[in-house]
């Protein structure tokens, strides 16, 4: 149970970063850390004590494998995470080009 708690602490650090920081790049960093924690949580629930990787071998009878379903879900989620990160970076660079800053409070002042 402690390992789940450490994973949640990692998620909470990312959440705190998203809530508290004002730099857009820092917010993207927080989102990335939260995403890592979510992926880690899925893989943790799939682990089995003394299990083997879900790949068959020739001539070996495998009895205890880890759960392959969360692996498949996380595999797609990682690539989607990269694409959404690139989208966020593109938006951030457009904001920098328009306002000359990454600080979200300054951006609000300029807009008002």
């Amino acid at each position: 149970m402690i390992i789940y708690f450490l994973c949640l602490v990692l998620f909470a650090i990312g959440l705190y970063c998203v809530l508290r920081k004002r730099n857009i790049i820092k917010i993207i960093v927080g989102i990335i850390i939260s995403e890592y924690a979510a992926n880690l949580f899925f893989i943790l629930t799939a682990y089995r004590i003394g299990g083997r990787a879900p790949i068959f071998q020739e001539g070996v009878d495998i009895t205890n494998m880890v759960d392959p379903l969360p692996h498949a879900l996380v595999l797609t989620a990682i690539v989607i995470g990269l694409a959404t990160t690139a989208l966020l970076v593109a938006i951030a660079m457009r904001i920098y080009e328009k306002y000359g800053t990454f600080d979200i409070t300054k951006i609000r002042e300029l807009n008002g």
Binding site: V79, L82, A83, A86, V89, A90, M93, Y96, E97
Partner: peptide
């Protein structure tokens, strides 16, 4: 799909960066 898509994203970001620095 994944390889071409991610390379397209990278090329687009690099070209944007050069453009804004030039300005």
């Amino acid at each position: 799909k994944v390889g071409a898509g991610l390379f397209a994203i990278f090329v687009a970001l690099v070209l944007l960066d050069l453009d804004s620095e030039k300005k």
